[in-house]
Design a protein around this nucleic acid. Structure first.
Lengths: 323, 323
DNA sequence: TCTTGTATGTCAACCGGTTGACATACAAGA
DNA sequence: TCTTGTATGTCAACCGGTTGACATACAAGA
């Protein structure tokens, strides 16, 4: 590949002049600019971003660690983060931890080695103390880590909305399906709020959690079928993702339980999936797009400190056909 | 951040010795190794991957350009590619072209500047000649570009399977929904084969294409509702992605058309979505996992030339509930 | 005449690593 | 005694850019 030296030779100038043309510094005649530009084009020259990064001590790359790219919520989140990163002229290095703490730690180190300018953490299997040594800009999604800014939506309110919707629809025998509560996530507030409201109304929901380190969709089925079988009197289910809710809806269909006539179902996230299902899913909307933009902006301008640590976004109930 | 010089100073050796410890070259006593290791740990030292890349002329990064991260097929593909890249100790830089030729070109240049060791192209809005200047390892997904290796599944056979399934189910009035055929993709063979088989049986399907530069799901609805309304006699639809098929199934439900009793539906890809729908989607399975692995292996070992240019994978019909 | 702005060039240092050449020193085996 | 292997160190060059200091030269305006 052509280097700056090849360009300089071809254009009959020094590398300093070529560098000046590229960076628009110092005095340059139009003629020199053109000579250099022509040489660059003829050689298909692209400046080596690695060499530039080394000198500039910034790579223009944001790292993103997610628990799963296949999960529709995170796929959507990744899509938006990529979108905004590109708008702000940053590249994105995406890592899929698959909810594995070892891989997650590897990725954190890897991204540090690769001099990413900032890190957005959407996967949280690591202990908080693993982040003690690293002081570079990290934004956290849905989790509080001492001293780092975090972006999340109003999970507590989401739980309240879900509970109210089920109560309003007349449910009395309610189940709640959620991710593993041992992971120290802010989304656990959905569960907390939901149970609180239900308890206030004298209802004690059955709670089912996924296993800790699993994003395995077969496992979802192994949870849901027994739940429905053992509790024939259930008339309402709140699942903490649209994906989980979709599995619930399908299981109901396979078991000839009608949704919403026999069981009401509420999901969470409001990803494209919720509109796509039959029947369309009633769910709690998270403003993913806005959250993604905020995460990117904090990642980029984190040092300027004009951002708050606590970045909460409102949720809302989206009424569709399952509740 | 600590550099190799800081480590050398702390350990009381020269940078050469530190470098030797890290790369395990030359003679080193156990004692020296430990001194250096300790210094590295105390300083939380991580070697600067950028500096290494510059010297090594390889970055350990594979670039991946996709038309959409939100589309379930590409999300799944990206997930698997990330998985295998990590297994082979490569990082992944993902770019989402959003089916925009300008962005796609920008990304190709960007990845070249960033010295990615190889590029996997899954988005194809660019003209073939844009790739003329670049001679670095590129693997192509679902498209032939002169001189580059490509990975794809047997689209032609997939089209045949779909046609045969609909014919076998007794369909006579058939529609076909596909991506825009102007994009020069191998997946167009699905359409070609499908129409061929249908024509051989005296059936002339209605063909509906998405617009060129759009991955907009609202647009899907604008295509599908009129199709169903204007052709009340349709009894079979072949959609070239599970996502499209899901929109068809939902539209049928909303219009009180029963699937599969009134209309049979066949999708394509066999992503998790197809199992999730109600009713579960009959579809053509693409071995995404295997295709992803092949793409990564070619990307990495491309120069060794032990791989063929033409890498075709078999498809199969997966019988579920919609046909 | 002096100063300032414009237009280039040379040179060297730097970013943070890696590597080859060469030197020194010691122990052990042929 | 000579050779070889082990254990370190110094030095310089390199990867491909960027940047500051300094030099030269010319034109124009004060």
């Amino acid at each position: 590949m052509a280097t700056i030296k090849d360009v300089a030779r071809k254009a009959g100038v020094t590398v300093t002049t070529v560098s000046r043309v590229m960076n628009n510094r110092g005095y340059l005649s139009q003629e020199t600019r053109e000579k250099v530009r022509n040489a660059m084009e003829e050689l298909h020259y692209k400046p080596n971003a690695i060499a530039r990064s080394l000198f500039a001590k910034r790579s223009g790359i944001i790292g993103l660690i997610l628990p799963s790219l296949r999960h529709p919520f995170f796929a959507e989140l990744a899509g938006f983060i990529e979108h905004f990163a590109h708008i702000y002229s940053y590249k994105l290095l995406i890592c899929d931890s698959n909810l594995d703490a070892v891989r997650e730690k590897e990725f954190v180190d890897l991204l540090k080695s690769n001099q990413v300018d900032a890190l957005i953490m959407g996967s949280h299997t690591l202990d908080v103390k693993e982040f003690a040594g690293l002081h570079y800009p990290i934004v956290t999604f849905d989790r509080i880590i001492e001293g780092l800014p975090y972006v999340y939506s109003d999970n507590y309110q989401g739980g309240i909305f879900a509970a109210q919707a089920l109560l309003h629809a007349g449910c009395h025998h309610v189940a709640h399906i959620c991710g593993n509560l041992q992971l120290d996530l802010l989304s656990n507030d959905r569960t907390k709020a939901f149970l609180q409201v239900m308890n206030d109304h004298g209802i004690n929901p059955i709670v089912v959690q996924t296993e800790t380190n699993v994003f395995d969709y077969a496992h979802y089925e192994e949870m849901i079928y027994p739940l429905l079988k053992m509790h024939a009197d259930l008339d309402g289910i709140f699942a903490t993702s649209d994906l989980l809710a979709a599995y619930v809806v399908r299981a109901c269909y396979e078991m000839n339980i009608r949704v919403p006539q026999d069981i009401k179902v509420i999901g969470y996230d409001d990803v494209y999936l919720s509109e796509l299902l039959v029947p369309q899913l009633t769910t709690i909307h998270q403003p993913v797009r806005e959250m993604a933009e905020m995460a990117v902006r904090i990642a980029i301008h984190g040092e300027d400190e004009k951002f708050q640590q606590d970045n909460i976004f409102p949720v809302r109930l989206v009424h569709r056909a399952t509740c």
